[in-house]
Deep mutational scan, measured.
Amino acid sequence: YKPCFVCQDKSSGYHYGVSACEGCKGFFRRSIQKNMIYTCHRDKNCVINKVTRNRCQYCRLQKCFEVGMSKESVRND
């Protein structure tokens, strides 16, 4: 598999339409299922990588959408 499109960590396969790691897969699923609203405490362009991905949930979710993750493919079960 290609590296995670969101944070470049080791991917566990294709999730919600893109190559993603377990961490970003779970983060995206929880964010969508719980209708989470995050805020960025900087200027909405935080670097998201394996080391920084937990620092800003707003920018991490934005990057999930930017790389093509589909909220329609998240099931509500």
Results as ranks from 00 to 15, higher is better:
29 R>K: 08
22 E>R: 02
39 T>N: 11
14 Y>H: 14
63 K>D: 04
6 V>Q: 00
2 K>D: 11
11 S>P: 08
20 A>G: 03
62 Q>W: 06
55 R>Q: 15
25 K>F: 14
46 C>N: 02
70 S>Y: 05
32 I>F: 03
55 R>N: 15
2 K>A: 05
16 Y>V: 09
10 K>Q: 15
42 R>G: 14
49 N>K: 05
68 G>K: 04
72 E>D: 14
67 V>Q: 10
57 Q>A: 15
32 I>Q: 06
35 N>K: 15
30 R>Y: 00
24 C>L: 03
4 C>S: 01
13 G>F: 04
13 G>V: 06
1 Y>T: 08
28 F>K: 00
53 R>D: 10
55 R>K: 15
66 E>D: 13
25 K>L: 12
46 C>R: 02
69 M>K: 00
66 E>V: 10
67 V>S: 09
39 T>K: 13
41 H>L: 09
40 C>K: 01
70 S>D: 08
40 C>M: 03
23 G>V: 07
25 K>W: 11
36 M>A: 14
30 R>V: 00
26 G>M: 04
43 D>G: 11
54 N>A: 13
59 C>R: 01
76 N>H: 07
42 R>M: 15
7 C>H: 00
38 Y>D: 00
7 C>A: 00
28 F>R: 00
52 T>Q: 12
69 M>L: 06
15 H>T: 09
8 Q>K: 11
70 S>P: 05
26 G>A: 10
32 I>H: 01
41 H>S: 08
71 K>S: 11
40 C>W: 03
9 D>K: 02
75 R>W: 13
56 C>N: 00
66 E>G: 10
1 Y>F: 12
21 C>R: 02
67 V>E: 05
1 Y>E: 08
46 C>I: 02
32 I>K: 04
37 I>V: 12
8 Q>H: 13
52 T>P: 07
42 R>F: 15
46 C>V: 02
61 L>M: 10
12 S>H: 10
18 V>T: 14
49 N>E: 11
1 Y>D: 13
25 K>V: 15
68 G>H: 02
66 E>P: 03
7 C>W: 02
3 P>S: 12
9 D>S: 02
18 V>Y: 05
66 E>I: 08
57 Q>V: 04
66 E>A: 08
33 Q>V: 12
72 E>V: 07
60 R>G: 03
65 F>Q: 07
5 F>P: 13
64 C>R: 02
55 R>T: 15
43 D>K: 11
50 K>C: 06
18 V>Q: 10
73 S>L: 13
53 R>N: 14
42 R>T: 10
71 K>Q: 11
69 M>R: 02
54 N>M: 15
65 F>M: 12
75 R>A: 14
62 Q>T: 11
36 M>C: 14
76 N>Y: 12
51 V>F: 14
17 G>P: 07
50 K>E: 14
2 K>M: 09
19 S>C: 08
52 T>K: 10
76 N>P: 14
35 N>Y: 05
25 K>G: 10
30 R>S: 02
6 V>Y: 00
5 F>C: 06
32 I>M: 08
45 N>Y: 04
8 Q>G: 12
39 T>S: 10
66 E>M: 13
49 N>S: 08
29 R>I: 13
64 C>Q: 04
14 Y>W: 13
32 I>Y: 09
16 Y>R: 07
47 V>N: 08
5 F>Y: 10
38 Y>L: 06
16 Y>L: 09
27 F>W: 01
15 H>M: 11
2 K>N: 15
48 I>H: 03
2 K>R: 05
67 V>Y: 02
9 D>M: 04
39 T>E: 10
71 K>E: 14
68 G>Y: 00
75 R>I: 10
48 I>C: 02
49 N>H: 04
59 C>L: 01
42 R>A: 15
58 Y>T: 03
44 K>Y: 05
1 Y>K: 15
35 N>S: 12
48 I>A: 03
20 A>K: 00
1 Y>A: 09
25 K>M: 15
57 Q>L: 14
68 G>M: 02
4 C>R: 01
33 Q>Y: 05
76 N>E: 15
65 F>L: 11
32 I>L: 09
56 C>K: 00
54 N>V: 14
21 C>E: 03
72 E>S: 10
61 L>K: 00
10 K>W: 10
74 V>M: 10
25 K>R: 09
44 K>C: 08
61 L>T: 01
7 C>G: 00
67 V>W: 03
6 V>K: 01
72 E>H: 08
13 G>D: 13
50 K>R: 14
49 N>R: 04
27 F>A: 02
15 H>S: 11
52 T>E: 14
22 E>V: 06
9 D>F: 02
30 R>N: 00
23 G>K: 05
62 Q>V: 12
35 N>A: 12
29 R>L: 12
42 R>L: 14
7 C>F: 00
52 T>R: 02
65 F>R: 06
67 V>I: 07
19 S>V: 14
46 C>A: 01
36 M>Q: 13
23 G>Y: 04
40 C>Q: 03
52 T>M: 11
18 V>N: 03
65 F>A: 05
20 A>W: 02
48 I>V: 09
44 K>W: 06
37 I>Q: 14
12 S>I: 08
58 Y>F: 11
76 N>I: 07
52 T>D: 12
50 K>I: 15
71 K>T: 13
45 N>Q: 13
18 V>A: 13
61 L>R: 01
63 K>F: 02
70 S>C: 09
71 K>P: 07
68 G>P: 02
52 T>H: 04
9 D>A: 04
74 V>I: 12
19 S>F: 08
34 K>H: 07
69 M>W: 06
17 G>I: 01
11 S>D: 11
67 V>T: 07
27 F>Q: 00
37 I>S: 08
68 G>S: 03
51 V>G: 09
19 S>L: 09
38 Y>G: 03
35 N>G: 13
33 Q>D: 11
1 Y>S: 09
60 R>K: 10
69 M>S: 02
25 K>T: 12
29 R>W: 11
56 C>V: 01
4 C>N: 02
75 R>Q: 15
45 N>L: 11
24 C>A: 00
21 C>G: 02
20 A>N: 03
22 E>P: 05
39 T>A: 10
10 K>A: 14
72 E>G: 07
63 K>H: 10
7 C>P: 00
63 K>S: 04
75 R>F: 06
63 K>M: 09
46 C>F: 00
52 T>I: 09
36 M>W: 07
40 C>G: 01
27 F>Y: 03
12 S>R: 05
12 S>C: 15
34 K>T: 09
60 R>V: 04
37 I>H: 07
14 Y>R: 06
7 C>N: 03
59 C>T: 03
72 E>P: 08
49 N>C: 03
77 D>T: 05
45 N>M: 10
